[in-house]
Computed example of a mutant assay.
Amino acid sequence: MTLRAVTLAAFAALISAAPATAAPATAFSDLPGWAQENHAAALAAFRGSCGVAAEPQMARVCGLAKAAGPLAEAEARRFFEDNFRLDAAAGSGTLTAYFAPEYEARRAPQGEFTAPVRPKPADLADAGPYADRTAIEARPATDALAWMKPEELFLLQVQGSGTLRFPDGRRLKALYAATNGRPYLAIGGPMRSQGLLPGEVSADSIRAWLATHRGPQAQAVMQLNPRYAFFKLAPDDGRPPSGSAHVPLPAGRAIAIDTAFHAMGELLWIDADRPVLPGAKPTYRRLALSLDTGAAIRGPVRADLYLGEGEAAGDEAGRVHHRLRLYRLTPR
């Protein structure tokens, strides 16, 4: 898949905020957080994923990194500073985050497990819009791969992939297979404007409201988003999920970007501050690789940071909605 090909705006992208602007750095030493970065860990992530880059100069630097092998902190920092120059993207934008969730599932409809995990339809073409969410959900699910709670299936579609856990202890990965080609609409804004969430609008509050109002009311809200994702199931091999670049996503070091402005395998410095949501970390400043895409990730200064798998990653991801300054590391 693309872990993020579905919406790929993690839970935090269910809401919106207008970023402010800030003056860009002009050298590595000027980057907020550069001195505190774990350059050795960043180089390890770069060495493991840089092969997806098609640009010849990046391929050359990738070869140097692989030949050098693991480096100590000071040497790793020097590697980046010697082999790259810093190019700031104009303006500021938004950083959100996503993760690979784990949900309970059933083999057949049972109790609150009423939402089918649908495979890619045989009549779904590679281009052009397909039926919208409302029409798809009205169809019989005779070929369902599994059954989930409706709000959790919706959020799985937002994330793009995850792990399903069955009562017998078996675990299967739900992997992105396709979408219906419809535009993605974040439901947080409409829920706020309709007064459904009078307090904080966050991933947790959206999920809680959908669960509490499970049935026609929640279904009507979820159907505001016409985009629908289809899945395929595979054994849980314990490996991290893969993104659009078809390599495992290193947690905390991979971002989804807009390919109209960034190439797969680019090395970027994210400088994110001014969180919108309570309980969020104040800053995210680190090196990351563009290894994924997302329907809601649009613009030159827009990124979605992959934080890993499981509940803790999900809790953190749901609070990430920060003002972003983005820098490309261009090979010298």
Rank of each mutant, 00 (worst) to 15 (best):
L8I: 06
V158S: 04
D273R: 02
H39P: 08
R274A: 14
A17M: 13
L305P: 01
A317P: 13
G238N: 02
T94E: 03
D87M: 15
P248G: 06
H213I: 11
P116V: 14
P129Q: 01
A59Q: 14
H213V: 13
G310V: 05
A177G: 11
R319Q: 06
M222A: 04
D304W: 06
N83M: 05
R214K: 10
A174M: 09
P235L: 15
R77Q: 09
S49N: 15
I136V: 15
Y98H: 10
L145A: 03
A125Q: 12
F154V: 03
K149P: 02
S161L: 06
T7H: 13
T94C: 08
C50L: 07
G128V: 11
A44M: 14
Q36L: 04
V301G: 04
M191Y: 00
A10R: 11
D258P: 14
E309R: 05
R118N: 10
A53D: 01
E81S: 15
I15K: 05
D304G: 04
S92M: 06
G51Y: 04
S29R: 10
A22D: 05
R285L: 02
Y306D: 01
T26Q: 12
A218Q: 02
A41S: 06
L329R: 07
Y327T: 00
H322F: 01
D271H: 08
P121N: 03
D258A: 01
P235C: 15
V320Q: 00
D204R: 10
G294E: 02
R239K: 13
C50S: 11
Q36V: 03
K173W: 05
T330G: 11
K120S: 13
K120G: 09
G252H: 00
A296V: 11
D143K: 03
P216G: 08
A59L: 12
M148E: 10
A68T: 00
A313C: 06
I255E: 02
A27T: 15
D271C: 04
M1R: 06
L249S: 13
A17D: 05
A127H: 12
A23N: 07
A68I: 12
E200I: 06
L305D: 15
E55H: 12
A144K: 02
A203E: 08
A303T: 13
L185C: 07
Y130W: 11
L95W: 05
G189N: 09
R118K: 13
A90C: 09
H246G: 09
A35R: 12
A89C: 02
Q194H: 10
I136S: 04
P109M: 06
G310R: 14
V117Q: 01
T142F: 04
A108H: 12
V158W: 08
L196G: 03
G314R: 05
E266F: 10
L43N: 03
R207E: 12
P119S: 07
G199P: 00
G195E: 05
D292C: 03
L291R: 03
G188P: 12
